[in-house]
Each structure stands twice: as structure tokens, then as C-alpha cells.
Design a protein around this nucleic acid. Sequence first.
DNA 1: CTTCTCTGACTTTTT
DNA 2: GTCAGAGAAG
Length: 700
Amino acid sequence: MAKDVLLEELNPQQKEAILYSKGPLLVLAGAGSGKTRVITHKFAYLTKKKKYHPSSIFTVTFTNKAANEMKERIARFVGSDMRQSWIGTFHSQCNKILRREIKALGYKPDFSIYDDDDQCNLIRHILKELKIYEALYKGVASRISILKASLISPEEFLSQGDGFSFDEKLGRVYLKYQDELKRCNALDFDDLIMLTVRLFEENPKLLSKYQEMFPYILVDEFQDTNHAQYRLLQLMARHKNICAVGDDDQSIYKFRGADVSNILNFEKDFPDAMIIKLEQNYRSTQNILDVSGAVIAKNPQRKPKKLWTEKGCGEKVIYCRLNTEEEEARYIARNIKDLYLKGNYEYSHFAILYRINLQARAIEDALREEVIPYHVISGVSFYHRREIKDIISYMKLALNTDDNVSLRRIINSPPRGIGASTLSKIEHEAKKNSVSLFAAIKLMLKSNNITSSIKDKISEFVKIIEKISSTHHKTAADMLKDIVEKTGYIEDIEEERLQNILELVSSAENIPIKDFADRVALVSTTDDEPKKASVSLMTLHSAKGLEFPVVFVTGVEEGILPYFKAIDDASEMQEERRLFYVGMTRAKDILCLTAAKKRRLYSKVQEQEPSRFLQDIPKECCNWIEKVQQKTEVIPEPAKLPPKKRASAYTVGCRVKHPAWGIGVVRDCCEEGSNTKLTVNFPGIGIKRLVAKYANLERI
DNA sequence: CTTCTCTGACTTTTT
DNA sequence: GTCAGAGAAG
């Protein structure tokens, strides 16, 4: 029975990929070729037919979303609970290993995990200390991150340098950074991978233990692995039973260290590797495949693929160039409205993609004008909000008092009168005794050379942290509640921040403390659930892995797509091309490419040339529209609406959802200045007056 | 220590 | 044009 269910409705290549279960296998899975299906079926096949235990298959993905999806789908198949399984992101898998084994590297198992924010804070602190121009921290952070992803240690990096250049300084910062992390008993994201590799390289016994634990390895989105991740896979796959699934054409994270050559060189590293191409596409029409295929075919370094579909030609791909970005946006909005009114599409069927976030603004304006519901999938995650990070920092410090970065963050928030001068005294004391900041504060409390007012303040702080860490909390929620209470954090803060904290607490309900701390660190949880009944706006990067019936790729212009910074670098140009390809292949039925002749970028208006990628598009698959005014004659504004009168996203009678009060009906709506003030009746709660932009409302 | 004002940077961002 | 962050003033 199992075999039938496992293999039915699969094409021959998919079947082959599932059945080939001995030795290394690379599955080149084109966009929309049923990649996830292959992985989940393969997992099921290995456990059902090949008698692998579910927890003996080391399965790695890049996102938590992908991991969860996979767990769910496999659980449905295999019928057993996947919570014990080793299916997860690279980072969470490494975290799991390191929590057990990190003592071998001289860290303590209760290490903190630093996110990008913490990482930047630490780097800035180091730059300040080494008297290097602090504004460089972002560039320094990303260089260090790429070094770690390439498994280059500070010592190695320093030994390559000439002793004078900027890289010399960078090397010193890197060295100090690693040192500080260790003092803090903290790991950044890159450490999770790098240190796992080091752990295995330095401890052959441990390595073989894990090699035996995992006789089979499955890798999703293989094109996105960086060198360190690849090395980890190489180490673990002693039995060479590794199946890597990916698409070199969809590698768009080079700037984060992803290395396409991993996919291009797989055959060299695993000489007897089997390669299977999945070229049947189940998503898009032939026209869309022809257009996107022609564009990607121009990339010199790629594994040739030719996607095909049984779907038929479908609609022609539309290309439309307009005068300005406002016109471009209006064109998109009107097209969406038209298609929606014809009744074949819901608003949730549309996606508008752009290269840079900045482009979203004009589009949002146009959608509001047409009263089209939309949501922007943005990068700012819940856990990155200041109040959330602050509360979490208390938690991290209580769990690991060596965590100096968290301590610096919260020692004066909420304000308790401990300013820069006090902190530098603490830093000094810590350095003198080579102990953590927290330990230094405790030393200072015993000494007599500080004023009693400072003593009171810092002793208060120490008491709070010690009380929190010595209390035995049952769940993470209990601990967070205790933190909020003891620190007085929620006394006079804005309503929105308070709501966020309450949300944080409720999300921690019934979760063990350490699990919660890991989850917060490793799960971005942007919580951008594909909101029902609204158009999705996002960058081309965030669109990867998604699909929509109707897709607009906007700003198809030189300078935007390809982005101007990539223009004089051949490998970055290739990546821009892939980015365009990823965008186009999100579309199922209708693909529309748009461009503007003039665009306001930052403060100046620029003349924009059409993107070079357009030259590669077969014109017979397209509807080519130029709505461009050749002469600069005075154009009678087609829409005579003064911007003030712009229709608000809210109308009397529409339904809204508030994070705390739930669903309500808008009773009144008025524009005051730049604010939209709403009167909303929440059943069971009553009538509330709200300012739309602060109330965190969702239109439903 | 907090608040205001000025400067300058300004892709993308799975963890 | 906008925002965050640094520095100056209160």
C-alpha cells in the first residue's frame, strides 16, 4: 500500500529521485517542479521502505517555515509525530548539537545566541574601543560574517594580511570580536555553524557518533548553502548517503555568503554522484516559462535546464513602460482592480514584487487610491522591536550572566539613572579583574570607592537580575511576567509597545524557558501569514518559494533591476538576473513586467533606461506596451484628485481587527491632518476612538 | 539623563 | 525624502 501512495502522481524523474537511495544524489529542481513533494515523499520512502528510523535522517532547510511545512507534510505521510525528528534549519540543528557538546570547545552549554542586532552592538563597542570609525560597523559585521561562513578564523585572516591595510584593522576587530563572544559565552548565527564544524573536526569521536546517528542526509535549497554549511554536510555524510535538492538558478543570497559553486561542484566532491533534473513545471504557463527561461539562459555559469509544462501557452506576458513610478503604480492598481472585478481572482491572488523596499511607497499609494486591500511583507520582525528585545535581554542575562551585550542593552532601560559614566566604571572594573560586567558590578558593590547613590542604583539592578534568575519559573511566560513586573518596564510606555509585550508573554505560554529562548533567537517569526483577501507586496528576495496566480515585477529598469551597485560586477550581474528569474517564475497564470521612464530615487528624479534583461525576452510571448510620453509637453493630470482627498483605506461600515480588542466595525472615519481617525465599535468591548496609523489595525 | 537638532546614508536579509 | 544615530543643549 505504502508504495502506491508514495509514488502515485509523480513524474518519472520525481520517482527516480525518490527511489535512488544509496549514495550521493543531486536533484536539480527547477522552479515549480515539485521539489518539496520529492523531499517529503523521499523521507517517507526512506522510513517506510528502507527502514530508516525517522530520527536518523538529518534533514536541513533554510527557513523555519520550510522546516515546519516539511514536518507537517511528512507527519501526515508517515503517521508519526515529527517533533522528535531531526528536521530543522541549519542553525537550529547545529544549536541542538552544540547544546549537548559545546563543552568540548570550552563554552558553557547555556550559551546565549546573538542575533544581527546583538552582533552589531558588540562590533560597535569594539570599534569604539579600538578607536576605529564607528559608522563602519555594518560593513565590518558583514565582512566578519562572510569570513566565518568561509571558515576563516581571525588568526588565519590576520596571517594573510600585510600588516597595514584596512584588512589588518578588520582582522584585529574580528579577533577581538570572537574573543568577546567567548567571554560573553555567546554565539552568533555564523558561530552556530562554524563551531559545529570545528567541533567535528577537532573531535573525531564525536563526529563519528553523529555520522552513525544519521546514516542519511537530506538538504533543501542546497544552492543557498555557504561554505561552512557545505563543509558540515561533507563531514556528516560519511556514508555518502546524501540527497541535496536545489536550483542553481534560484541562488540569490550570495551577499549573505551563499555559494552557488557548492551546487556546481557537487559532482567533484562526491565523484559518483547521481544527478537528476526535475524540469516539468507544475506552476506556470508555457509563455511564462519561455520568457523567464530565455532570461536565465543567458547566465554563463549554470546547469542547463529547460522547463516545460502541460498547462499550455496561457496569456501573453505583459511588459508595460510608463512615464513615472506613480503611473506605473497606478497601472498596476487598475489592472488588479479590473481583474478582480471580472471575478476570476481574489485579492490574495496578486503579488507585486520589487527590487528595493523603497519602491513599495508609490505602489501603496496607488493601491490605497483604488481602495485595494494589501499588505507589505517587510523585514522588521516582531522580535526585533525595541521593547521585545529589551525584555528578551533580561531573560538572556538571567540565564547567562556573562552576556555583556544584553547587560549593556538593559542596564538603563527602563531608565534607572545608570548612564555612560557609571557604565564605563563598570567596564573598567570588569577589565581589571577580567570578569563579566555583571560580576564587576557585584565586586563594585563590595568596594568603597563609588558614591552611595550609584551603589544604590546598581545594587537595585543586580537584585532584579538575581531574583529573576534564582526564581524557579514554570514556563517562559511566567518568567517574562516576572521580568515585566520586577523591572517596571511597562510603566509609562506607549500602548502599542505594551500590546507587543503582552503578545510576547502570551506566545511564551506553556513553553519551557530554554526552548523559548532558543526559539526567539532562531525563529524570525515575521508572522507574515499570507493575509486573506489582500494583495501581497514584497521584495523579489522574499518572494522566493512562493507562488501567485498574478504577479507584477516592477521597476524593470537599469539601475533598479539590475540594481546599480551590481552593474560593474559580472557575478553580481548574474545574481540580479537570477533575482529577476525568481520573480517571474512566481507567476502561475499572468505575469506583468513594469517599468518607469522617470523615477524619483531619494531626492532626485532620474531618467531610467529599460532593463538589459528585457532584450533577452522572446517578443512573440509578450504584449509590449509603451505608455511613454515622448515629448515633455504639459500632461493634463489624468487623476485630478488632490493628494489630500485620497481615499482612506478605511470606510464607514468596513470591518477591522485590533490586536487586543478583536474584530470591530468602523462607525466613523475622518481625516485630521495626516491622521485618519476612526470610531470603531468592538462588540462586547464598546466604542473606541483610534488613530489608524497607531492602532495596529488590520482591515478584514 | 533627557530632548532636540543636525548629519549623512540610503539593496537584498531564510538564521 | 526619510530615518536613525550622534552630538549638543537643556
